[in-house]
Design a protein around this nucleic acid. Structure first.
Lengths: 133, 133
DNA sequence: GCGACGATACTCGGATAAAATATGTCCGAGTTCTGGCGG
DNA sequence: CCGCCAGAACTCGGACATATTTTATCCGAGTATCGTCGC
């Protein structure tokens, strides 16, 4: 079990956009180069983020992707869910009469992790980075 | 990102063995039937648990799998690690000079989850079940 | 009665196959900016 | 000087191709148990 590379790219892209924050959109090519992915593939990932309402795309010359106004409130979990989907880690495949206790344990563990990811926003991370620089 | 079905089977099998606890080994066939998996596949999964030192196998007639003596201390995390491996959820694919802050956040979230799974033992779960029954 | 022997019921582990998912590529279509050209 | 127009620079999104992982099956080999047969 691992997070997909797509999630990796999505997180890095969001961080990049949040750190750069010019109001001008940033082209896919530039970001793809930086992360060593093909532009078309990255674009596909970013489309998911657009649909999730985190960023917006601008067509045409000087087009690209740009954070939406509400970006300060976006958490890690939001991004991860946008890419990986919101399905839970575990599905008990067996139907024993009562609720599956194994599933309860695993899901509550998952909830612990999600809680942590929900409390981390991109904007906080950017602040920390700027202190370091 | 999801836990594999193999993990699912492994957890259920361990719980079953812990709940049954006859000193006689239990055959794969019986457990495979219960979980609706093919015996050979389940056997392959159980081999991993054997290698991890959680259960032991007995060949021959009346053979099967049996918990080892230390089973009371086995946690959910031990079982999951035995099946899924111990690699972490996230690997930053990009080499920015400093440590990747994204990775730090995700890994500390993962740690929260693992902590929870480490504190849940099969034997505790069995106790709870017995109260319910 | 006792020990050897063979049939039986298992597990073991490697080879292989099928299926699902993740990753990546290609291309046609639509959109916006830019620069040049004509009025 | 001003507006129109064509081309360049983009993104969009679907169809397609490849790689990786997961899930599953098959089968030959090894091993312990049990019953039987011969002594």
């Amino acid at each position: 079990m691992k997070y997909s590379k797509a999630t990796n790219y999505a997180l890095h892209t969001m961080l990049f956009l949040a750190a750069a924050t010019p109001n001008k959109p940033v082209g896919v090519q530039q970001m793809a180069e930086q992360q060593e992915v093909s532009p078309t593939y990255l674009s596909k990932i970013l489309t998911k983020l657009v649909k999730a309402g985190m960023i917006e795309s601008a067509s045409g010359a000087n087009g690209g992707y740009r954070l939406k106004r509400n970006w300060e409130t976006i958490s890690f979990l939001d991004i991860i869910h946008a890419i990986e989907g919101t399905a839970s880690l575990f599905d008990c495949s067996l139907d024993h009469g009562t609720e599956c206790m194994i599933m309860q344990v695993v899901l509550s563990a998952e909830e612990k992790m999600e809680e942590h990811l929900r409390n981390q926003t991109m904007s906080e991370l950017v602040k920390k980075m700027k202190i370091v620089l």
